[in-house]
């Protein structure tokens, strides 16, 4: 019996140890995507404020949402994309920001990103990075100009097109090439887009569906055309000067990743200090130069001067921005439709 008692005691002690893993107060839990920050920025922040940064990597918006549902108090700063911002606000999972404590964010955020459609009053989100979705092509492997989504359906590029294996972007392209909104919730439009994508696959035009691999494969000259985000395009062009990037004339997606604070964030003030630090022009510039996407920070843009201004991949002109759209969040029921239809595309043969 003694042994039994000691065993139970052991278990109790173990449980107590685990639950006593108490929070250290001067920290900030930052959850961001992998490789999506200049890490020396974190050290600068720690040196200046004495707040320790716990940096947590996640794969994508969906993983973030899942993590937040499982443990709502796990993060202080999160970096969701536009449509996820809309969903988090609708589900009441994020805290309002105290703009008094965000002087840099207030001063330097670009005007047209201050009140975006996903957060109309700008109460919950501060833009971190933005960019476009477009076509990266190898000038030595294409004939004529590439300026349209329809080029991805051109049979002269058979087995030479890398599509993007990402639900919203893939379906969005199918919708856009038919002239519909990339956030369509119309059943018949979605069916038509699916059939269009299946047709592209069955005609043998698609070489592969990839996400992270695309950049490297385009640098290696493995395909003529690929759908990529502007930041990846910039890196690829840097390594292989034969590559060029275009935002198709039909219009495309502009995405914005935003810094937000979860409703149950344990260190609200530290979170705001972190967000505002990231909005300092020189810090925003360091991040922008490391990541290669477009900066929403006018101070950073001014500091980068003419080279950045002339770079149309990172800094698209107003006319390009005007023909692009930001994704709207898709209601859960329709999103299931998106999933099932996209599975049909991936399973087609």
């Amino acid at each position: 019996m003694k042994k039994l008692v000691s065993l139970i005691l052991c278990l109790l002690v173990l449980t107590a140890c685990v639950s006593a893993f108490a929070a250290d107060d001067n920290v900030v839990y930052v959850c961001n995507y992998f490789d999506y920050i200049d890490e020396s920025v974190l050290e600068l922040f720690e040196q200046e404020t004495g707040i320790h940064v716990e940096y947590i990597n996640l794969m994508d918006n969906e993983a973030l949402l899942q993590e937040m549902e499982i443990s709502p108090a796990a993060f202080d700063v999160i970096v969701p994309s536009d449509y996820m911002v809309e969903r988090l606000i609708a589900r009441d999972m994020v805290a309002e920001l105290d703009w008094e404590k965000l002087p840099n964010a207030a001063q330097y955020t670009l005007d047209y990103l201050k009140n975006p459609a996903y957060d109309p009053e700008g109460k919950f989100s501060v833009p971190y990075m933005w960019g476009t979705l477009g076509i990266l092509y190898n000038t030595k492997m294409v004939e004529g100009t590439v300026d349209s989504w329809a080029d991805l359906w051109d049979e002269k590029y058979a087995n030479n097109v890398i599509m993007m294996d990402s639900l919203r972007d893939a379906m969005g392209i199918g919708l856009k090439v038919l002239g519909y909104s990339m956030s369509s919730t119309n059943e018949e439009e979605l069916f038509a887009a699916t059939d269009k994508l299946v047709e592209q696959k069955q005609k043998g035009i698609v070489r592969a569906y990839q996400l992270d691999e695309t950049k490297d494969r385009m640098v290696g000259g493995e395909a003529a055309l690929a759908v990529v985000y502007s930041g990846d395009a910039w890196f690829a062009i840097d390594e292989n000067p034969d590559l060029a990037y275009v935002v198709p004339k039909e219009g495309s997606n502009i995405w914005v990743d935003n810094m937000m604070v979860p409703k149950q964030a344990p260190h609200y003030d530290n979170a705001l200090a972190f967000i505002d630090f990231m909005c300092r022009p020189e810090i925003a510039r360091m991040n922008c130069e490391k990541i290669g996407y477009s900066s929403p920070n006018s101070g950073a843009i001014a500091g980068m001067g003419e080279e950045y201004a002339a770079n149309r991949v990172q800094n698209p002109d107003d006319e390009t921005v005007a023909r692009c759209e930001i994704y709207h969040d898709i209601p859960a029921e329709v999103l299931k439709d998106y999933n099932d239809l996209y599975n049909e595309v991936l399973n087609a043969h």
Binding site: V18, A22, A23, I70, S71, P72, A73, Q264, P266
Partner: peptide, 8 residues
């Protein structure tokens, strides 16, 4: 509260 909190 810490990030080890799990709500099942």
């Amino acid at each position: 509260m810490s990030r080890f909190d799990v709500s099942l």
